[in-house]
């Protein structure tokens, strides 16, 4: 089996288009959703204290079960939703459980004195969160959220389980009809690498920059 550069280049546009239309879309919308939900989980847990235990169990359940099964489950349960919508929902919810942990870490990293100072000033709870805790916590959390977004990005090929035509599925189809798997999967891998590696570096930089 020899390497055919011309063929590799010829599949590139099609793969890139699937990458942008599906992979990036799911990653970006899914990450935003995960970031928003994760914050809700984290604040709820912090505010409810011990009473948040049931929520914790639900989050652990989602975090500890495979995305493919979750995709299939949601896809067949809500058959009025498009596969792409299902994908975004599942990825968003699944990774919100991880991001919730990151927010928790960020909130925990804030010294007790900050809470005490807010109490001493009689700030109401929402001001304490909005003006004092979150601005500091987010700073510590942002790189971590970015890292989870990258992890989600690399999980998007799981969409193949519910038949979404994302990049790796397309690569597999092209490979199947031309028997040139080497080129298609290499290009698919390179596209992943080209997107995830610089982002990971960026997060490492960000982390250094944002550290107090």
């Amino acid at each position: 089996m020899t390497w055919d550069t011309e063929f590799a280049l010829s599949v590139f546009p099609e793969l890139l288009s699937a990458f942008v239309r599906v992979t990036l879309l799911v990653t970006v919308v899914g990450s935003l959703m995960a970031a928003a939900l994760g914050l809700v989980w984290a604040i709820t847990q912090r505010s409810l204290g011990r009473r948040s235990l049931p929520l914790r169990w639900v989050l652990d359940f989602i975090r500890m079960t495979p995305i493919p099964v979750q995709l299939l489950f949601v896809y067949y349960t809500f058959n009025n939703l498009s596969a792409l919508t299902v994908g975004i929902l599942v990825f968003g919810i699944h990774y919100s459980t991880y991001m919730a942990e990151s927010y928790r870490a960020g909130i925990e990293s804030i010294r007790k004195g900050q809470w005490e100072a807010a109490t001493a000033l009689s700030l109401p709870p929402h001001r304490t969160w909005r003006a004092v805790i979150l601005p500091q916590a987010l700073r510590a959390t942002l790189p971590s959220l970015g890292n989870w977004a990258i992890a989600m990005f690399k999980d998007t090929p799981f969409l193949i389980f519910i038949g979404v035509l994302e990049m790796v599925t397309v690569a597999r189809q092209i490979g199947g009809s031309t028997f040139r798997y080497t080129e298609t999967f290499t290009i698919a891998g390179l596209i992943f690498l080209a997107a995830s590696y610089p982002t990971a570096i960026l997060m490492r930089r960000l982390e250094k920059r944002l550290a107090y």
Binding site: M1, K154, D155, T156, P157, F158, I160, V168, A171, R172, G175, F179, Y181, T182, F185, A188, G189, L190, F192, L193, S196, Y197, A200
Partner: peptide, 23 residues
């Protein structure tokens, strides 16, 4: 490490499953 971290588990599985037999 960066190669394996950067290119998705699924791509790697497919590579082993579809490409290696060709070799």
């Amino acid at each position: 490490v960066e190669l394996f971290r950067g290119t998705s588990l699924v791509v790697q599985v497919f590579f082993l499953f579809y490409v290696l037999p060709l070799w």
